[in-house]
Amino acid sequence: MRATLRAAGPPALFVVALLALWELWAGRSTSRNPVLPAPSRIWRAFRDTAPLLPGHLRTTLTETGLGVLVGVSTGVLVAIVVSGWPLARRVLHPLLIASQTVPIQVLAPLLVLWAGFGLAPKIVVVALVVFFPVAVSTAAGLQSVDVELVELIRCFGGGRAVLLRMVMIPAALPGLFAGLRISLTYAVAGAVIGESIGATSGLGLYIARSQRAFRYDQVFVGVAVVTLLSMVLFSLVSVLSRVLCPWQRRTDRST
């Protein structure tokens, strides 16, 4: 309990202090400057539009979830292919890099054009941002497998399936989670960008509409919900990683 307080205390205090400063500074100039609304006004906007938010949130969450699923599966698959066949690495490497150089803001309208206003283009965008970090760090995990460990299993007569279960999968898991943690922060943003370009529902649509109506207080509500969603997903992955990779907790705390 005390450890949790000590860990969470300083960042929480810092956020509160920032909000207070923001309130003081923006509160005086609100009437003249609606572009930076004070936290209290954002809170009012949140209460006013609260009934709308769950629907949008559900859409964004669905797109992010499915996108992450597709992205992780593709990433793991690419990692296995690339670390298993050197030729595949040489062939795929430039393509993989190229896939990450196209800005999402450019790609998203094209995807909407091709795949319509539904979930599909957003899932593709999310998958596209997720798969690369996952592929890179999973491949790094697979390639770091100790050759002697592989030999040890082999000389006891263990075949491919045993090797996969006992060595390869556990060796790749921490890398997979590291990549997932990095990409999750972009995943929600990817879905939101996709939605802001063309959608019938979603937090991105909510933000885009508010922007067009010059309701910047509502824009900030959208931003806050997106941020919270990202943080919740991030913690979820951290918990999952700690459950599935218990050996990674190098220091066992006594308190």
């Binding site: 299993i153 007569g157 263990g158 006992m166 050996w247």
Partner: peptide, 26 residues
């Protein structure tokens, strides 16, 4: 066969490491 390095699997606790050879043999 036992090499100079202990080659324990870092993701297995001691007891689970002790059975690695037996498990690999099926």
């Amino acid at each position: 066969y036992m090499a100079q390095r202990d080659l324990l699997l870092p993701w297995r606790r001691a007891l689970a490491n002790a059975t690695v050879g037996a498990e690999a043999r099926g």
